Amino acid sequence: MTDFLSNISQKPLYVIDASIPFSEYIPISIAASNKELTFDVSSSKEWEAYLENYFLKHKKTVAFGGYLEIRDIYSRSEHFNKLSEENQRNIHLGVDLWCDAGTDILAVLDGEIHSFKNNVNYGDYGPTIIIKHSIEGNEFYSLYGHLSLESLEDISVGKKVKQEEKIGTLGDSSVNGDYAPHLHFQLIIDIEDYKGDYPGVSSKKTLDFYKENCPNPNLLLKLSNETNINKF
């Protein structure tokens, strides 16, 4: 499946406002190992200030990254935090794209709405949309988390969507699980019985399964290095 996903497009695919060129994107790490994160990582306001300075410093608009990052930020929430290190969910399974609240969110490829839900646990996705894709006999799903409440107002299961069609907008910290505004974008092979939700963070104990079932979104996004981005 990874080869199939990688070969769908040779160019980066958009999941946020296509009027923002890829030259405005910059990698970012929010891993626990990043020594620059000297602020209170449990505070969405301090994250917003850090990101604002990051964008100003680098003269960019969108920051991206995070697949399989080990992060401290989830320890603030009982939704993720477990007593044993093995069971603590702190390994990120998607790619985050950090940008302004209200930014248009786009379907990565043609598909149909599989499900949607407002996941209201503290530190959770908030409003979330999942799209089912069927391409050349291969089925997989894309998940868009941390959206605005308005994104769930005019939507229905089974609705067809086109590649780069607007499916919603980015939410702010008051609705998105209390994070600085960003899109959590994730690929899923087997959605299991989930609707409008799917684990976006893994523990060490379950990582082997989730690495197989949630392949790197950069197989589609192709945002893994600046050289590639600035070609387009």
Rank of each mutant, 00 (worst) to 15 (best):
F80Y: 15
G123F: 04
S134L: 13
L147I: 00
E85I: 15
S142M: 05
T61E: 06
S148Y: 02
P215N: 01
F185D: 00
L5D: 02
Y14Q: 12
K60V: 15
I20D: 03
S33C: 15
I73A: 06
P127T: 11
F116P: 06
K211C: 09
N213S: 02
Y141S: 09
L147Y: 00
L221S: 05
L183F: 03
A18T: 09
N216E: 05
A18D: 14
T103F: 00
S202E: 00
S33K: 15
D193P: 01
W98I: 12
Y122F: 10
D172L: 00
Y74I: 05
K35R: 15
G200N: 05
E86M: 13
K211V: 13
Y122N: 10
G196D: 09
L106M: 08
G66M: 12
K59D: 14
L109K: 11
I8F: 07
K132V: 07
S134Y: 11
E36G: 03
E78D: 11
Y198H: 14
K35W: 09
F116V: 11
E52N: 14
V175H: 00
D100F: 10
I191L: 05
Y144M: 08
K159E: 09
T206F: 09
G200S: 08
V108P: 03
S44K: 08
K132C: 06
M1S: 13
E48P: 05
H92D: 07
E69P: 07
V15Q: 06
D172Y: 01
N138L: 09
L143T: 03
N118D: 12
E36L: 12
G123Q: 02
M1W: 12
S156C: 10
E46R: 15
P215T: 08
A180N: 01
D154K: 11
A31G: 13
C214H: 00
L5A: 02
H146G: 04
L51G: 08
V120D: 00
V157F: 01
G158V: 01
H58M: 01
A32H: 13
H182D: 03
Q88A: 11
I129T: 06
K160L: 11
N7P: 04
G66W: 10
N90Q: 13
N81L: 10
E36M: 07
I167K: 05
F39R: 12
S29Q: 07
Y50F: 15
V15A: 03
L143M: 14
S173G: 00
Q186T: 04
S156P: 09
K132P: 02
S156Q: 11
N216G: 03
C99N: 09
W98E: 04
I70K: 15
I16V: 15
E136A: 12
S33A: 14
L187F: 04
D40H: 13
L149P: 08
Y25L: 12
L97Y: 15
